[in-house]
């Protein structure tokens, strides 16, 4: 099975089998954002709590999807929990850059447009997320890996435009 082991790394299967931060949070105070992959019908729902200091105090993931989208969401939740919104955004940039998505605007529209690539000067350590690097070899699956990250960006955008939902 050529290349499959690059895609389905052990840690990915582990996050798929035992997803971290699975569940829901009460809204409000939490904010709820949902993202779809129209290609395959996958759906990710993010519940996120951001405190007054701009810290992600809690995050839960709901929805359904393939091993790549679910493990990516699980790793994302573990990576951003406890981080500042700014750091979470920087991590999103770093992750999407690894996924070969060079988008200056990592907006909530889920667009993977190759807009003028913004140099990522704040390279953050990706940790477990490095395991998803192999996805790049399977271009169709990149959208699976980025779904939860796009949804996270969308959640931040929505929070920024309507702080009252806090």
């Amino acid at each position: 099975m050529s290349g499959l082991e690059d895609l389905y790394r052990e840690i990915i299967i582990d996050h798929y089998r035992s997803p971290r931060n699975r569940g829901q949070l009460e809204t409000p105070p939490a904010h709820r954002a949902e993202g779809f992959n129209p290609l395959c019908g996958d759906e990710v729902v993010i519940f996120i709590d951001v405190d007054d200091d701009g810290l992600v105090t809690d995050i839960k993931i709901d929805g359904q999807g393939c091993s790549i989208s679910q493990s990516s969401a699980s790793m994302m939740s573990a990576a951003v929990k406890g981080k500042s919104v700014d750091d979470a955004k920087a991590l999103t940039s770093t992750f999407k850059s690894m996924m070969s998505v060079h988008s200056a605007e990592i907006g909530g529209d889920g667009s993977e447009a190759d807009a003028d690539a913004q140099a990522i000067d704040t390279e953050l350590p990706l940790g477990d997320l490095e395991a998803l690097r192999g996805v790049v070899k399977f271009p169709v699956r990149i959208k699976c890996a980025t779904l939860s990250w796009n949804t996270l960006s969308q959640a931040f955008d929505e929070l920024a435009s309507s702080p009252d939902t806090e």
Binding site: L4, C40, G65, S67, R141
Partner: peptide, 19 residues
């Protein structure tokens, strides 16, 4: 998940559709 099934099947040159 159907997407994963389809991926493994592709490595066996079997073309099916997930979604």
């Amino acid at each position: 998940h159907a997407h994963d099934v389809s991926q493994i099947l592709d490595s066996e040159a079997v073309c099916i559709r997930p979604g």
